[in-house]
Structures are given as C-alpha cells and as structure tokens.
Simulated scan of single mutants.
Amino acid sequence: MSTKLPPLNALKVFEVAARKLSFSQTAIELCVTQGAVSKQIKTLEEYLQLALFDRTPTGLQLTDAGKFYLPTIMEALEQIHSSTVGLQQFSAETQHLTLNISPSLSSLWMIPRLNLLNQTFPSLRLNIVSGDGAYQFHQASADVAIRCLPMSLSHQNATLLKKETLLPVIHKDLLVYTPINEPNDFFKHYLIHPTTRPQLWQQCLSSVLSSEKRERVLKSHHAFEHFFMSLEAVKQKQGIALIPEFLVADLLDDSELINPLGFKYESGYGYYFLTPSYRQQNTLIKQLYEWFDDNLEA
C-alpha cells in the first residue's frame, strides 16, 4: 500500500457518499455529476486496494473497511476545515478604529453587545475611550465619537442615532411602604440627580404636574455625573433616578427595578454618531454607523 496521502477530493466524496449512501444524492450535495462521484470512489478504492462500498440490490452499503475508515476521515476533514477558517480569519487584514463614547452608553449598552459586534466585524479592533459633552476632532483624536447632545442645536459632522427617552426608575422594595400611584407621589421619594443636568427632575415633573404642585420642594439625595452611576444607586435602593429607556430596558424586564406609572419623558437630547469630515466616506465607518443605528433601535 502506498505511504502517500490519498487524494483529498476523493476523501471528500467518500465522506459525503458514506453519509448519504447514495451516489446520486452525493452528486447533488457536491454539485457534480453522478459519474464524477463514481470515478472518485473508484480512484480511492484502487488507491487503498480495498472496497469501501457494497453495491447491493437494496442500495449502497459501507463495507467493514468503509465503516472503519469513515470516522477518521470525517474528523480529519473537520480539522482541515476548522484550521482553514481560522487561518483565513488570522490572515485577514485587521482594522483598527478609536471610538470615543459616553461612559454610560459604553458600560450599560455597548460592552454587553461586544459579541454581537464581533460577529458583524470579525477583523475590527476597537480602541474604546470614554468622554462626555461636545466633541472636537483633531489630529490623533478618535475616528468616531458617540455623544448625548441637545437636539435643539446643530452639531457638526453628527448624525442622530436615537432620541433620548428617560424613565423614572426605582427599586421595587422602596414601593412596598411608599407606593407611587400618581405623579405627585414622586415627591415622597429621594430623587437622584444627574450633576450634568441639575434641572432634569424639575423639567420632567413639570410635564406631568399642575403649576401649583410644581413648586413643591424635591427631596434630593446623592447626585451622580453619569447614568450608570445613578442606576447603580437605584439598585442599592438610594432613591429614584431618570435613566434612558434603552439603557435600563433589560433590568425592567427582570422586575427588580420598576418604572412607576409607566411614565416616559422626552428629554430633548439625542445620541449622535460623530465622524470627522475627512472620514465620512470610509466604508468601515459607514458600516459601523449602520450597526449602531440598527441595534440602538432593536
């Protein structure tokens, strides 16, 4: 018997034919003629000097030699396939981008979706940094930025991804003895303020309260710079906070945190995708924008 390796094409045909036990079905799967299948099997059997199939009146059957050979060939072909895919991914050109993104959006939304991002962009390597407020691109700065900005202003090199809808969120345990049955009941709880928008609670409650009730003193508690910090305080039963809906939706589904009265507040802010003008035609950046646009709406 020859010590050289058998023909790879013949091994592949054998593996399919052994699974199908039909040369005609093998030909369909491999998109070749039935004659080509028969020829490859004959070539392999002559090479091995062993019959791999019995052609019986009831159909094709594996011989003892074929049954012995099949598991090893299946495993070997799978290893070749896996190694080839891995090599292709390894050798694909890796693309690097720096993304400057607001801290809460990064920690509460993007990081939990990195596996989804990796599936869409297997060769993309992001350098993720955080920041808030207006962003100015300059030399050696980020390639892309995502910011929560006032929608009333015109922002250069910016495309709106999503309007900000805020929900008042509270731990369910705080409602056991102090329920919220109407908007006025918000005043019975400590309100967690965002330091970057100190008037946010007042603006929110003004949208649902009569003018005389708007003058009531708010029970303020700790204030935090970022939404992810306020959300953690809510989890620790420190009070009630206004959190963007898409950042807290999964937690509300678990019923530990609650949006009393199902109340929503359109803040007048939005999440923007910012790109310097000289990179706006970059194919990868366009695709990354589409990924954010699709998944923020999901």
Rank of each mutant, 00 (worst) to 15 (best):
N157Q: 12
L231Q: 14
L117W: 10
G270M: 08
G239T: 10
S154P: 05
Y177F: 04
Q238F: 07
R147K: 11
R55C: 05
G270N: 06
E93C: 00
H221V: 12
F137C: 03
A142Y: 07
S206F: 01
D143H: 05
E245A: 09
A158Q: 10
N184L: 08
D173G: 09
K172H: 02
E29K: 00
L87A: 15
L153I: 02
L231D: 04
V234C: 12
K264I: 03
A145E: 03
A18P: 01
T56H: 02
Y69V: 10
T72K: 15
L166F: 01
T26C: 11
L160A: 03
S230F: 00
L105H: 08
K235Q: 02
Q88Y: 14
L149G: 09
A223G: 14
L21W: 09
G270V: 04
L48H: 01
H81A: 14
R125A: 00
F228Y: 15
A36P: 08
H138A: 06
F224T: 07
I243P: 13
S91Q: 15
H171T: 10
D185T: 03
L174K: 02
Q79N: 13
Y47G: 00
K162Q: 08
K162L: 13
Y269K: 05
Q89T: 10
N118W: 06
F246T: 09
P194A: 06
E29S: 00
G268C: 00
E297T: 11
L21A: 11
E245I: 08
Q281S: 13
F186M: 06
A18H: 05
D250C: 03
S24W: 08
N282A: 14
N9S: 07
E164T: 15
A10I: 03
T33D: 06
D254G: 04
I101M: 13
K12Q: 12
I28D: 13
D132R: 08
L11Y: 01
A158F: 05
S107F: 06
V129Y: 10
T72G: 15
L160K: 01
E93I: 04
N100K: 06
D54R: 08
V248G: 12
S106R: 05
P260I: 07
G35S: 14
F263M: 13
P198M: 07
I41V: 12
F90H: 15
P6L: 11
G66N: 01
L87Q: 06
A249S: 13
I170P: 10
A76K: 12
F14H: 14
L48T: 08
T43P: 05
F90T: 12
T159D: 05
Q156R: 02
G131H: 02
L167K: 02
K162Y: 09
L166M: 15
E15L: 12
Q139K: 13
N282C: 11
Y289P: 00
T165A: 01
F14W: 04
Y278A: 02
I101L: 09
N127K: 10
K286N: 09
A92L: 15
L175N: 02
H138Y: 03
V169L: 00
